[in-house]
């Protein structure tokens, strides 16, 4: 795993630090999950379905208990400061799946009591921006609207760290774009950070500063996006160019009638022959890494 820092941030700038998180299930395990996020940035958490994204995010909030590992939020140890830290964290897991027969205004009236810094004005602005009707019941909302309602709750108590699990899935393209813009606005003051998991990699191309990639419970990479992307190249060649040396260096490849397309680590360049190289995008990196 490589772990690069942007701008050489100091310890005080760190809003989230995860060290050697382990959680073993019968058929799946999180293995030494480590990454960190500094104030004022957006980190995209990518991985396939079942790679461990939600489990990791739930572990950060103690909804799932890690077997070992340390989590620090805003410089504080989570285990010893759970209450204070939860006030500073906004979490969204997919959408609102609780109390489907209750009205949004009822759930809001309960939720807001728990937050010392609840901002009714901000909440009303988000309700308007997301076009939510407080008189509606949760089950009457589409999946996308459920996510928006969950976000409105999470954003209205001045959270410094937002932990969002698949916040963009289920949203239409316009809402997704609006949400990504909102994320950018939120981190503008340099005090807040967002960690969000997704498998819609184009969202991250638009707004993420860092990428953390989890595969089968292990972090493959956690780096700033440019470095992460620069670390890989797409190679294209003819059948004849698919030599043993080339294939041994490829992370993954696909063959077709003309030749092959594959992914290679920039560090493993050059390779023999005049093979076409082009920059890799997140989706391509994910697809070929999963073929490894």
């Amino acid at each position: 795993m490589h772990n690069f820092k942007k701008g050489g941030g100091t310890q005080q700038m760190e809003i989230l630090s995860v060290q050697d998180l382990n959680k073993r299930y019968e058929k799946f395990a999180l293995k030494n999950v480590s990454f960190s996020l500094e104030k004022g940035y957006i980190m995209g958490f990518i991985g396939r379905n079942g790679a461990g994204k939600t489990t990791t995010l739930k572990t950060l909030l103690n909804l799932v208990h890690a077997d070992s590992g340390a989590i620090r939020v805003l410089g504080e140890d989570f285990a010893n400061n759970e209450l204070a830290i939860k006030q500073k964290v906004g979490a969204v897991f997919g959408g609102v799946h609780y109390y489907p027969k209750k009205k949004l205004k009822t759930i809001t009236s309960v939720t807001k009591r728990f937050y010392a810094e609840w901002d009714e004005g901000a909440y009303e602005r988000y309700v308007k921006r997301f076009d939510l009707d407080p008189e509606k019941k949760v089950y009457e909302l589409s999946d996308g609207m459920k996510v928006k309602y969950a976000l409105a709750l999470a954003l209205s108590h001045h959270a410094q760290l937002l932990i969002l699990d698949e916040p963009t899935s289920g949203l239409d393209p316009v809402s997704r774009d609006d949400l990504l813009e909102l994320f950018q606005e939120l981190i503008e003051d340099g005090e807040k950070s967002i960690l969000f998991s997704t498998h819609i990699t184009s969202d991250l191309e638009k707004c993420a500063d860092y990428i953390t990639y989890i595969r089968n419970g292990e972090i493959i990479a956690s780096a700033d996006k440019e470095r992460f992307l620069n670390d890989y190249q797409i190679v294209k060649g003819t059948k004849e160019q698919f030599s043993e040396e080339v294939s041994s260096k490829l992370i993954g490849y696909k063959k077709n009638s003309f030749g092959f397309t594959g992914l290679i680590k920039t560090a493993d360049l050059p390779v023999d022959g005049h093979i076409d190289l082009s920059p890799a995008d997140l989706e391509t990196i994910m697809i070929y890494c999963e073929k490894e």
Partner: peptide, 15 residues
Amino acid sequence: ENQDALFSVSLPVRK
């Protein structure tokens, strides 16, 4: 049925 446990624990409270 209402996922009360998850809702409650997600709030800033002790389990």
